[in-house]
Design a protein around this nucleic acid. Structure first.
Ligand code: ZN
Ligand code: ZN
Ligand code: ZN
Ligand code: ZN
Lengths: 173, 173
DNA sequence: CCTTGACCTGTTATGATATAACATACATAT
DNA sequence: ATATGTATGTTATATCATAACAGGTCAAGG
């Protein structure tokens, strides 16, 4: 599963839902970034400075960011400040499976499971705006079954759920 | 299930997937429209001329239409030709469960099962652009289970799959 | 009757998201 | 060194969506 080796507990590598839990996020982000480097190498593509920086920006929190927000951050770091700069970096990340596009939010989020083949299912908290990637296999299986029943072949799917995370649910109560 | 009564076979009322099948679409659309009238009555809201016309336009095919396309059609029929005219009519239809918003396409499609409580799952054919609403219950159950496993409560969900319908699959082969 | 208030329609204006097209720079391979 | 593919940057424009306000309709209550 995880293609990096270190001894200590690595929540980012085991738990699918840490977006909603308190955790060592610096470690979490570092870990994903390291895996991203490895994946780029493997795939024979270049994780150039803008692209890497865009990923770092997405990794600052478990939230989705709009392209223009990412752009603003990139520009502040000395990169170009026109929309294609952000869109191209984000597009690259999505193509390489390093980020996901959340259509419901017109926004992008870093993938927390890069390299693992996964049809993502997103849980979006309307309280704190955190986005988690949930266990998708059963959902995808149900979807494939429903589609197959009428002869439809699913190639790509978005599953995006809006609701409340445990913390926000408790806060609301 | 179906809240209208007529004797003959009514594919629109039984089959979930007729978007991809040849069928008597005039009947199909008429039927939905009649149910829409009934639903508006029930809900104590008004299916005014613009709103009804917008629904008719969506019902012309089993495809999603962008708000601006709907607007153009409405304007041609003598209604206002500014974006809010279309967006408001569409918003009304969505609120009343008479249409769905397909986020992946930035577009809207008539609901083929108005009045039936259903969390929709959309199957979007990339060949012919038809959009079908599939059996969603198992998908939704899987999603709820995955969410519950990490304490997340799903309030609303979009499930949108892109792929090939039976006809386009055959055509491609 | 006629006023009030809710709601629907329409307009102007602007905001937010996304891409096309082209120019320049950089990498790598002959 | 030159050619080739790829990456970055810019200008301009396309596409999608909403805020804010003005006028019209209609039914309920005075
Ligand atoms: Zn984290
Ligand atoms: Zn939350
Ligand atoms: Zn039909
Ligand atoms: Zn098709």
């Amino acid at each position: 599963m995880s293609n990096h080796a270190h001894d200590h507990d690595c929540p980012g590598c085991s738990s699918p839902d840490l977006a909603f839990s308190r955790h060592d996020h610096a470690h979490c982000a570092q870990d994903v970034l390291a895996r991203a480097d490895a994946i780029a190498e493997e795939n024979g593509v270049r994780l150039t400075p803008v692209r890497r920086r865009a990923l770092e920006i997405l990794l600052e929190s478990h939230r989705a960011m709009g392209a223009y927000d990412v752009l603003q951050r990139l520009a502040a770091d000395g990169f170009g400040n026109q929309p294609p700069v952000a869109y191209r970096a984000l597009e690259f990340l999505v193509e390489q499976g390093l980020a996901h596009r959340i259509r419901r939010l017109n926004a992008f989020a870093a993938c927390m499971h890069p390299g693992e083949d996964h049809a993502p299912v997103f849980l979006i908290c309307r309280g704190c705006n955190a986005v988690a990637e949930a266990q998708a296999a059963p959902v995808r299986a149900a979807l494939d079954a429903a589609a197959a029943a009428i002869g439809f072949s699913v190639e790509r799917a978005n599953v995006e759920a809006l609701g409340l995370c445990p913390a926000c649910k408790e806060a609301a109560a």
